[in-house]
């Protein structure tokens, strides 16, 4: 297993947000975590990236424990998160955003090639290279956020709600790019409220409800599961 989350409990202050969560992602897999607003999906990602310390439980990457590492060391290992809401550096231009993405220890010697690669994937970014990130359209911003993540040469890419706030056409474009990446071997762990899109793209999924995993399985099985249909697909 590339990533193995074992029995993680975490929260803020005295509030517990996620309870005893375990999940696994294998090399090259595309795994989704689906769940409603406030289920604790982003919190789970923040724990994996080291921004929130878990109360208990452990996280392993390639069999090595991550849990005690500071966030920047987790990034240096290749665990790269594209956070919810994109979190660009709005007053910096596109290129500076990308360069920041590519400055971790593993990626920094590869910046030029990475830059070429993300421009290939998202040609519009090259056109906008010297424009301030804050002035881009929503779709462009999501592309930039994803591209910035790719600049970091992820060994696993954590995507927090990549479709949030985007028009359907844009969603399709983003996911097309993600599919290309996944086909090339990129491991993706993705969090989504958009269940249809998730299950269509990911191979496997976990269902998170009130901070607990209530279901998991292959996307095909989950699409056909009555409970999923009722709760998330509105069928």
């Amino acid at each position: 297993m590339l990533v193995s989350v074992q029995d993680i409990t975490a929260g803020y202050g005295s509030v517990t947000v996620i309870k005893n969560i375990s999940l696994e992602v294998d090399r090259g897999e595309w795994v989704a975590v689906i769940g409603g607003n406030g289920a604790g999906k982003s919190t789970l990602f923040r724990v994996i990236s080291g921004l929130v310390r878990p109360r208990s439980g452990k996280i392993y990457f390639e069999g090595r424990e991550l849990t005690a590492l500071p966030p920047h060391e987790i990034v240096n290992k290749g665990i790269i998160q594209v956070p919810e809401g994109r979190m660009l550096f709005p007053k910096m231009n596109v290129i500076d955003n990308l360069l920041l993405g590519g400055r971790n220890r593993r990626a920094r010697n590869n910046v030029n090639e990475s830059l070429k690669k993300v421009y290939d994937l998202f040609p519009i970014l090259e056109k906008r290279a010297s424009q301030e990130a804050g002035t881009l359209s929503g779709g462009e911003q999501q592309m930039l956020a994803t591209a910035r993540g790719l600049m970091a040469l992820p060994r696993v890419l954590l995507l927090d709600e990549p479709s949030l706030g985007l028009a359907p056409l844009m969603v399709r474009e983003i996911f097309n790019s993600l599919q290309i990446l996944n086909k090339e071997g990129m491991t993706i762990l993705m969090v989504e409220q958009n269940v249809v899109v998730s299950l269509k793209n990911a191979e496997r999924a976990y269902v998170l409800e009130n901070g607990e995993i209530v279901m998991s399985g292959s996307s095909k099985d989950l699409i056909n599961d009555d409970r999923t249909k009722q709760a998330y697909l509105g069928i």
Partner: peptide, 25 residues
């Protein structure tokens, strides 16, 4: 410079800067 970019990154969004692998502390 890279240091300057890191400083500006932290000032614009500290969490995002952390996710870039910047040792914010």
């Amino acid at each position: 410079t890279d240091l300057g970019r890191q400083i500006r990154a932290i000032s614009q969004n500290k969490d995002a800067a952390t996710l870039m692998g910047i040792n914010t502390t």
